[in-house]
């Protein structure tokens, strides 16, 4: 199994003191190499779920097991390290660092995992079609190109699981399919499991396994 969630609960305390439940996932699993799309409305807890899976956010209870490791048992530094080494993330807004070139953005993730491999970074960028744009900085790249850099960066540390948060939401229709295909193809090529969240049914239609977040996430106030 690439990902297993058991009784994962997460809630936030609102400014008025009320408790706002966001996640309540009894069970969810993803096989190694499997590609799943998670469909849900805005505010449905999609991003919180991805943050919990990546270890960015801690959960209130339950187990978040990625590649056999229960992240809820790791200290923060351990989760950071684990995320750097085994989880790739593609954000909706790309989140590239504007001061760094395309190559450096890819290398950045490798640096935090302690294994910067310039050749592999270059290979990845060539794979996403940016072989001739290595030294371009994000502002010098088109929106589609920026998202390709983000895909290459997510694969930089040879992760076991890729999390993609609405990766096509910020690109035009022409680029949407290209990016989607690229993510799916590269994940397949590298044997990486893919969990993509989206609210777009057009995107969801391209996946074999489509999960409605509302079907397994039933937030409720809990102790």
């Amino acid at each position: 199994m690439s990902l297993q969630l058991h009784n994962v609960k997460k809630s936030y305390r609102e400014p008025d003191g009320n408790i706002l439940p966001v996640l309540n996932v009894e069970s969810f699993a993803l096989d190694q190499g499997e590609q799943v799309v998670l469909v849900g409305e805005s505010g449905g807890g999609k991003t919180t779920l991805l943050n919990a899976i990546s270890g960015i956010t801690t959960v209130d209870s339950g187990e978040v097991i990625v590649d056999g490791v229960d992240l809820t048992r790791l200290p923060e530094a351990g989760r950071d390290r684990f995320r750097a080494e085994r989880i790739g993330i593609v954000f909706q807004t790309f989140n590239l660092l504007p001061a760094f070139s395309a190559l450096e953005n890819v290398l950045l993730g490798m640096t935090f995992a302690g294994r910067a491999d310039r050749d592999f970074a270059r290979t990845l960028l060539e794979r996403v079609g940016l072989g001739k744009r290595l030294s371009h900085r994000p502002p010098q790249l088109s929106v589609g190109e920026q998202q390709r850099v983000a895909v290459a960066r997510a694969l930089a540390n040879r992760p076991r699981l890729m999390l993609a948060d609405e990766p096509t939401a910020s690109v035009d229709l022409a680029n949407q399919n290209t990016i989607l295909s690229l993510i799916r193809e590269t994940c397949s090529e590298h044997g990486v499991s893919l969990l993509m969240v989206t609210h777009s049914h057009d995107v969801a239609d391209q996946f074999d396994r489509v999960e409605q977040l509302a079907n397994f996430n039933k937030p409720e106030v809990h102790a």
Partner: peptide, 11 residues
């Protein structure tokens, strides 16, 4: 972003 990419707080 750096933290999401795996940078530790100390980093």
């Amino acid at each position: 972003i750096m933290r999401a990419l795996g940078a530790r707080r100390q980093t």
